[in-house]
Design a protein around this nucleic acid. Structure first.
Lengths: 127, 127
DNA sequence: TGTCTGATTCGACGGACGTCGAGACAGGCG
DNA sequence: CGCCTGTCTCGACGTCCGTCGAATCAGACA
């Protein structure tokens, strides 16, 4: 049941997901886990984590594939595949402008993931 | 190079990892990505995400395997396997007391992951 | 229209992952 | 000591993932 055989063509994290109470505060419901786990999974690869960072920290908030690809010792199709994974996880958006394709981070889901992992200092003090 | 063929028996996230500047603020270095990606990967499974939440939100800060297992329609060995994955990712600690084994969350790495995903409100306003 | 460049899709291969049953290990209790 | 319960390890199986080369699609430009 842990294998995501669900199609989930495009996750709409902004729609119906409650998601927000921190993971350490209340138990994450199975449905929420099923929706958010793919996002963490998408970040669970070093290449995608760097791609996500390069996109999110880009100057104008967007990065061209032509700038992302040469940063790795990987083929173009492989980078394209990782970008598709990030896109299907709802972490980035793609837009074609003329010859080039630009990727842009979606801050909302990033905030949701960060909120899920957040720990109030009081809980940490108990250690 | 994205395939984690590294053994990484036990990640020591608290030791030499800089890790802290948000992902959207400066590019995550390859070395940092290689160390942190497995932690996200460990959270990238619905079962492990729920296990992590059940452990982190437990009453006394710890949860017994005997309480975790019946919450899923999965065999004992499978739950044990997922707990081992969380342990090797540095997300939880295990301790045997008598007959039962108790798992405890490690707040430090959770804070590091949350910090990496954090977005200052200013950046979000640019959308 | 033809051609060139940038990006994606397709098909394939090897390795990793999630799951299980069977067996082994650890500790408590008659 | 022997048995029982709880947990982990070990193989095994089917599926998914990361990677590549080849082919395809999308625009720009002459």
């Amino acid at each position: 049941m842990s294998k995501q055989q669900a199609p989930l063509p495009l996750i709409d994290l902004n729609a119906d997901v409650p998601c927000c109470p921190p993971l350490a505060q209340s138990q994450v419901p199975a449905e929420t886990a099923a929706v958010l786990a793919p996002a963490f999974k998408a970040l669970g690869d070093p290449v995608r984590l760097r791609l996500m960072s390069m996109i999110a920290s880009a100057e104008d908030g967007e990065a061209c594939v032509c700038d992302l690809t040469p940063a790795f010792n990987l083929s173009g199709p492989t980078i394209s595949h990782h970008l598709k994974t990030l896109r299907e996880a709802g972490l980035v958006d793609a837009e074609r402008r003329g010859t080039w394709v630009y990727y842009r981070a979606r801050p909302q889901i990033l905030r949701q993931l960060a909120a899920l992992l957040s720990i109030e200092p009081a809980a940490a003090a108990t250690v």
